[in-house]
């Protein structure tokens, strides 16, 4: 089946099979390996992407369901060589250890800031409630998002 959609501002047409998950299509067909699998059941958030402005777990969506949608992955945050402010802030605040949850964390945080440019700490926690991290205890991730808001 042909899947036509916009990924990171680019018009893409790829072949997918009916039961294929969006996660697998993005990784295998478009090489967007920032999208990670950590649980396969929408619980860990490592595969989070932004679809039509909202953070969603790409392991719980069929590839075909993305037809005509606009998708952002971490690869798409960088604009003309400039990192997104969240990316800068994650680096500056020590929010990254093993890095496996990082793309998902960035997507959830980015989706939050699209919707609400001035979230409270509690709202940040709620936005990343579906993103698990074993390394950091979240503190530095939350600080990074708060820091990005200030800047």
């Amino acid at each position: 089946m042909k899947l036509e959609f916009i990924v990171n501002d680019k018009h893409e047409i790829i072949d997918v099979y009916p039961g294929e998950r969006l996660l697998d299509a993005l990784r295998n067909k478009l090489g967007l390996t920032s999208v990670k699998e950590g649980c396969g059941e929408g619980e860990c958030g490592a595969c989070t992407i932004i679809m039509d402005g909202a953070a969603v777990t790409s392991c719980t969506i069929l590839a075909m369901q993305a037809k005509g949608k606009e998708i952002i992955t971490t690869e798409g945050l960088e604009k003309s060589g400039e990192l997104d402010i969240l990316q800068e802030s994650f680096m500056k605040n020590g929010a990254i250890q093993c890095g496996y949850c990082t793309p998902g964390m960035l997507m959830s945080s980015k989706a939050l800031l699209i919707k609400n440019p001035n979230p409270t700490k509690e709202e940040i926690k709620r936005a990343i409630e579906g993103n698990l991290c074993r390394c950091t205890g979240y503190t530095k991730i939350i600080n990074a998002v708060l820091d990005a808001i200030e800047r």
């Binding site: 390996t33 990670k36 699998e37 690869e75 680096m91 020590g94 990254i96 890095g99 496996y100």
Partner: peptide
């Protein structure tokens, strides 16, 4: 000193390759 980890840029841009990639 709190110097950044050597690979954070590759991680924050999603470019870094794990064995699964």
């Amino acid at each position: 000193k709190s110097i950044r980890k050597h690979d954070v840029k590759e991680k924050v841009t999603g470019k870094i390759k794990y064995a699964g990639d």
